[in-house]
Write a protein that binds this DNA or RNA. Sequence first.
RNA 1: UCCUCCUUAGCUCAGUUGGUUAGAGCACAUGACUGUUAAUCAUGGGGUCCUUGGUUCAAGUCCAAGAGGGGGAGCCA
Length: 463
Amino acid sequence: MKPTTNVKQLLKSKAEGQPVTLMGWVRTNRGNKHVRFLAVNDGSCQASIQVVAETQGIDAELLKRATTGSCVGIQGVLVPSQGQGQAVEIKAQELRVLGDADPEEYPLQKKGHSMEFLREIAHLRPRTNTFGAIFRIRHALSFAIHKYFNDNGFCYVHTPIITGSDAEGAGAMFRVSTLDAAKPPMRPDGHVDFSQDFFGKETNLTVSGQLEAELAAMGLGLVYTFGPTFRAENSNTPRHLAEFWMIEPEMAFYDIHDNMDLAEDFLKYLVLYALENCADDLEFLGQMYDKELLDRLHFVVENPFRRITYTEAVEILLASGQKFEYPVAWGNDLQAEHERYLVEKHFQCPVTVTGYPKGIKAFYMKLNEDGRTVRAMDVLFPKIGEIIGGSQREEDLETLRGRVAEMGIPEKDMWWYLDTRRWGTCPHSGFGLGFERLVMFITGMANIRDVIPFPRTPKNAEF
RNA sequence: UCCUCCUUAGCUCAGUUGGUUAGAGCACAUGACUGUUAAUCAUGGGGUCCUUGGUUCAAGUCCAAGAGGGGGAGCCA
């Protein structure tokens, strides 16, 4: 038997004494010998509903078992509340304890917990107000991403999780193998013989779906991917995960300016979607963790992103008089401290930087007429830094082959990618958005491990 | 991977110059209270002071190594 309703619906309902069956988890159980008040939450929304149980009608032993964390089923009627804090409440007629939670053992309390502690009990985090809010927002944003692209004529393509190419060069990869790790077959030259492995070659988990998305865009026009991505980097920061979700649109016939327009419109749409559809959860997070959260979100929606070139960025940094740990010089990559200065001090708004030196960017980015910069774009956000990285792609076969050679990538590994430029090539662009970084920005969470249910980081794959 | 800080009750934390029996709030248990709002009040139980080794008459406190965690950096999304 399942509940006839949920808390979200009930709180919007007119209380007319209508019968309800509700199931959920007890947050608090307070009152006295004669009447008990249970705050019951079922995850349908931020708020709990108050269940009033008079001990005359409800077995005292059952009420005693309805402790914080226990799961209960209530049959009763929805009535206007006699108390102050809420408009409606359930007058219980029957209470069932579906699952006890021994209060001596149950780790979650009514009081606040540290994020670090909750991370250690990630299997129980969904039962907290904070993680309820975060995961509902995460869901809403996932949905909004698909809605945005669908409404704008994009086609969702599923790029492979297991890849035989490591040409993307986006970082260290996780090997996928069925070989015996203790004694793998060896070649005479002392290397592991991957020809005997499951796929007959060395394979890894994907670090990006971009190259395959480009193949799809060359026939479908506008495409996007949204899937898990894996990086075996030993990154220990509040902004990195070994397993994260990435959105990668790829658009035929888009130049770098169209790309920037799309990135900005897309981000604003997602922030606005959260503001309009997750108001209660954002309100809660703003109240509890970050008083300026809602102001910051509104600011992003309402103001244009600043657009500058890498060269202009370097000039601004050099003229700033600011002391930086890493020297600013044309040709060096922008460091976190430089990006933070541009976004948080100089412009005080999101910034899109284009035209990076080719030496610090990937081989597939389109070379500018100057021969020394490429049509890369990074969108930099306050607090979290680079949220989007993208570019117009090099569509000219010979130029691309030159870049591939420069980077020391064997052409035979890239034959299928190069083929797109061989036949019917066209200008095209795309970018990658780190989903968890977006969720961080919108929820105001400071650590990326708190916006994904079960974070994978170096030395941690629990749950 | 580098730098830095932290680890004491279920949780959050205090613990003086190394010195008797390691404390508080919350949580929990018991009791009181007929409408509570993270209820309130009273009483009570609760400790591998992260681990190992060392210095010392004496270590939660000092030293070393290790483990785990936080922050910063790099790599990146």
